[in-house]
Amino acid sequence: PPDDERKKAEKAARSGNEEKAREILERLGYSEDEARELAKRLR
C-alpha cells in the first residue's frame, strides 16, 4: 500500500538516505522535483 511505501521513504530520509527516499517517492507517482523536495522535508 502507498502508506507503507511512504513510511519507508520517511524512514530512509530520516536515516540520511535521501536518494532511496526519493526513489520510493518517485515510484509512488511523485515527479522527480516533488520527490526531492519531499525527501528533504522528511529528513
Rank of each mutant, 00 (worst) to 15 (best):
R6V: 14
P1D: 14
R41Y: 08
G29R: 00
A21D: 02
L42V: 03
K8Q: 13
N17T: 03
Y30A: 02
L28E: 01
R22A: 07
L38D: 00
D33P: 07
R36L: 07
E5H: 06
A12H: 10
R27W: 06
E19P: 07
A13M: 05
E34P: 01
I24S: 01
E26P: 00
A39T: 04
S15Q: 13
G29V: 01
A39Y: 08
L25P: 00
R14N: 05
A35R: 01
D4A: 12
K40P: 00
A21W: 08
E19L: 13
E26Y: 06
A21M: 06
R41M: 10
I24Y: 06
D4S: 13
R14L: 09
E34C: 10
A12I: 07
L28F: 04
R6G: 04
D4R: 11
E5N: 07
K8F: 09
E32M: 09
K40D: 05
Y30E: 00
P2N: 13
K11L: 15
K40G: 06
D4P: 10
A35E: 00
D4V: 12
A12M: 12
A13I: 06
R36N: 04
E5D: 11
E5K: 06
R41S: 06
A35M: 03
L28M: 14
E26W: 02
A39C: 14
P1H: 14
K40E: 09
E26R: 15
N17V: 03
K8I: 10
G29Y: 00
A9V: 05
R6W: 15
E19V: 11
A12K: 03
K40Q: 09
E5T: 08
R27V: 03
G29F: 02
G29S: 01
A12F: 15
P1V: 12
A35W: 03
E37N: 09
D33L: 10
E32T: 11
P1F: 13
L25F: 14
G16Y: 06
D4I: 13
P2L: 13
K20S: 08
K8H: 11
E10L: 15
E19R: 13
G29I: 00
E32P: 15
K20A: 12
E32V: 11
S31H: 04
E37P: 00
D3S: 12
R41K: 11
D33S: 13
R36F: 07
L28D: 01
P1A: 13
A12E: 11
K20D: 05
A9H: 04
G16P: 02
A13K: 02
E34Q: 09
R6Y: 15
R14Q: 10
R36Q: 05
I24D: 01
R22D: 00
K8R: 12
R36Y: 08
Y30N: 00
G16E: 03
R41L: 12
D4G: 08
E34A: 09
L38T: 04
E10H: 09
R6A: 08
D3P: 10
E37Y: 13
I24M: 06
A12W: 15
